[in-house]
Amino acid sequence: MAELKPILLVEDNPKDLELTLAALEQSQLANEVVVVRDGEEALDFLYRRGAHANRNTIDPAVVLLDLKLPKVDGLEVLEKVKADPALRQTPVVMLTSSREESDLVRSYELGVNAFVVKPVGFREFFDAIQDLGVFWAILNEPPPRPNGP
């Protein structure tokens, strides 16, 4: 039985983290959400090293990646992922507070799959997260439904 791929959420701000988790929760995805708090940890998880050396999860269905992160920032993580043939296929969605065009342009240059400027309104945020989660976690990789009809 194929294991459901997790969603990797990379977010340092606890409030944004809580709100994002709430939104994901409401979208009723079955996928596990793995949370890491900075860029370095995100790379450790992806490369199975450090604290995540012995993780037994499979690679994520999608990485929701905040742009501004401590240690290694979002753009660097994105660059590493997209430069690595083994990880390149993993979809990365950039989440950001910024409307700065330079960030957006740079992300697209690096091969981001989607770019979401976190809207001020919670409902729009919720919609965006749900759309993303559903699109990348479910539609791209239809999960088996052991309990479904």
Binding site: K15, D16, A22, S98, V120
Partner: peptide, 22 residues
Amino acid sequence: FSYSVSHDLRAPFRHIVGYSEL
């Protein structure tokens, strides 16, 4: 300046709206 406003000033408003909605 506007880069920092864009990042730092927007976030609290977003949080207020988000938590109030919750």
